[in-house]
Amino acid sequence: MQIYLPIAEISVNLFLLLGLGIGVGFLSGMFGVGGGFLMTPALILIGVPPPVAVSTQANQIVASSVSGALAHFRRKTLDVKMGLVLLVGGVIGSTSGVFLFSLLQRLGQIDLVISLSYVGFLGSIGALMFIESVNAIRVRRKLARGGQMPRRGRRKRNWIDTLPLKTRFPVSGLYMSVIPPIVIGLLVGILVAVMGVGGGFVMVPAMIYMLRMPTNVVVGTSLFQILFVTALTTFLQAAQNQTVDIVLAFLLIVGGVVGAQLGARAGAKVKAEELRAALAIIVLAVCLALAWGLVATPNEFYEIIEAGGQAT
């Protein structure tokens, strides 16, 4: 059954879209990630114009992060102050990202920038995750054989501690400058606008390793920031570029919700390290597929860029 998407202006199979939503939702429920980094390339692959795919995906992440953010808020595993500081950066990043997006669209380079950012981010994140999970599996095996847990060195003072504008974050138990969280929020905001991802895969490691936040509040705080930044991005993309497709977003939300529930149940049965290694392999596979698209000789050496009403 075909369904016509009013903003994407293409006709797509309804069950393909629902299946895609369930599939990506399953993976995101299983691995506890947003899934935007898988959904956006998949949408582009089935013919959704990249600007519509990225903006609509931001809209879908609003739905997938709202329930998680609420749950963490209820359980108080969320540093609201840190979230708000991240959000300040996020708002600046997302706003400039949306304008950067329309500029790149006019220059005809948006597809290239989307692909390049995906290859760069997925490549480095996937490689880091893979190395980390393989090490974790090794350590676990060693422990099982009666080995000793490797000792962590005492944390040293570094350049982050020398920055001004220090403030206290009571929930995280930190006393630090607001500049690093604002910069992290800003970078993630740009990622949301340009790549259509929540940015959790960048923010969570940054919060743990750079801000040294306690792990129990990291996920909740990152979901809090993602919820507001994706909501703002959706609004701005709709206002500036008219690229949010409500019909597409709704179908992805429906599929995603069902898939996430199934995935969460399946994920509970698998060990965390193996799960992370599997996710790393998926991330690297998507990265390689996109990289291949950049370097492989194309079938068509020309491309048409619709001027979108007013030409520059």
Binding site: V62, S65, A239, I246
Partner: peptide, 18 residues
């Protein structure tokens, strides 16, 4: 339109979770 898109996502995401 942007507001409607955001509200729709919040309501459906929250509703489904409930």
């Amino acid at each position: 339109y942007g507001l409607v898109a955001v509200i729709l996502a919040v309501v459906s995401g929250w509703g489904a979770a409930e």
